[in-house]
Write a protein that binds this DNA or RNA. Structure first.
Lengths: 237, 237
DNA sequence: GCCTTGTTGAGGGAAATCCCCCATTGCCGC
DNA sequence: GCGGCAATGGGGGATTTCCCTCAACAAGGC
């Protein structure tokens, strides 16, 4: 335990200074391996589509109980535990238990016994959930110290991975005059048909504008677009 | 340095297990004091309107250069560095430098020289910014290790403080606790069905809550409810 | 006890939104 | 001139939200 904290900090520093995904992976493996974690998952998520998991940066280990034959990417997106990260407010431990009707995942305070256990660490930013890291294994150290240490490392790893892998992509994000106008009326409680009448457009056009707005802001629903646009100063709060 | 990581982890654990603000304060002081930090600030914030700082949990030390005669709460709300936390995506160091036309704050990679320096650590959650912790001093250790260690501790401290201080009372907004929760997730792009799953409710109930929210706020549509609720400070912007 | 409020849930149907594609027009820059 | 983009509009169908009513239960005040 006295080594843990130092190792975690050293790992985080190494990850921050790293220049590639392999550095991150090695650093995490070296730290978490001795603690019983041999399955790793790192992904970015956004509140955009229904399929909220946007990009899988790293998936490794026998998550699938079939030796990895399933398509990792697809599996990850459907994994109940992965998806639970989208609802979580804090890091949490989980257990996969065998039930008569197949496998069941449960969020637990401290996993024990046979089966696969893990730790999920959501990563948040100014706009909410931005990604998560998941670590699992058969016999894991699930103490509070490990949770804190891995939270530090996972958060650092996520930011580093995103910086490295997401670098080229950047978004303009701002709305056009017309789009601000449409969104402004929407925020004022007007329905699409009303806005169309007000602005002298067809309902179809208003709808298209709203879709484009959602796309540009990278959000899934119009209510969310309102919130983001207010945050951006695109429309009045 | 080899002590730092251990001390940080120990501090975080102590804070998590603590049962009062004094425990948190002592823990932070003990860790950060030897690193040169003697001014502390912990507050909750929402990204809603102008006055984004919601509640100051802890302010201590000579932040004001006048020995603390100014109203701490007021000062904190206006402090440029404090406000910068609202725009930050990650922890950052800052420096207060003397300029011909008064004091100036600057965000820097590594503060040095005379003057007051500090570290700001924003804390995020599913709905975006939730609060921040600021630590300052005349001669601070501004290494990457310290940044990481204090990030861990500050994040833990914020969650603990909120849990302890925000538990009993909540704001008098027209919306009930549950309603704010539902509306908050809606503003984060979740659909009714998803919110139902997250909160363990039927879709019907979520729908009923949203209708009641609209009724209470006196608005016609949910997007408008988002805007009004943000304006009222009922949900995070 | 009685009344209010918060929270939960339902049935049934109407309305609105959202999604995929597509096309036209006009403007701007290279 | 040509490519790119904003603005406009459409077809057609799948989801989602919204609206009305009704009901049960727990907690708290009077």
């Amino acid at each position: 335990m006295s080594d843990l904290a130092q190792a975690a900090l050293r790992t985080a520093l190494m990850i921050e200074a790293g220049d590639g995904l392999p550095v991150i992976q090695n650093a995490v493996r070296t730290l978490a391996g001795p603690l019983g974690y041999d399955r790793f998952l790192l992904f970015s998520a956004s509140t955009s589509h229904e399929d909220r998991i946007e990009r899988v940066y790293w998936v490794e280990g026998d998550w699938f109980a079939d030796g990895g034959r399933a398509d990792a990417d697809t599996y990850v997106r459907r994994c109940p535990v992965t998806r639970h990260a989208l609802d979580a407010r804090e890091p949490f431990f989980w257990s996969k238990v065998d039930a008569p009707d197949g496998e069941r995942y449960r969020v637990v305070r401290s996993p024990r016994g046979a089966g696969v256990h893990g730790l999920q660490i959501p990563v948040f930013g100014p706009l909410g959930l931005e990604g998560a890291m998941s670590l699992g294994g058969q016999r894991i150290d699930a103490s509070a110290s490990v949770r804190l240490a891995l939270t530090l490392v996972a958060t650092t790893a996520f930011h580093a991975a995103r910086r490295l892998l997401e670098a080229p992509a950047s978004k303009p994000g701002r709305l056009s005059e017309r789009e601000r106008e449409v969104l402004g009326w929407t925020a004022s409680g007007r329905r699409q048909a009303e806005i169309a009448a007000t602005l002298g457009l067809s309902e179809r056009t208003v709808e298209n504008h709203l879709r484009r707005i959602r796309q540009r802001l990278g959000v899934a629903t119009t209510p969310q677009a309102i919130r983001i646009a207010i945050g951006n100063g695109d429309i009045a709060g």
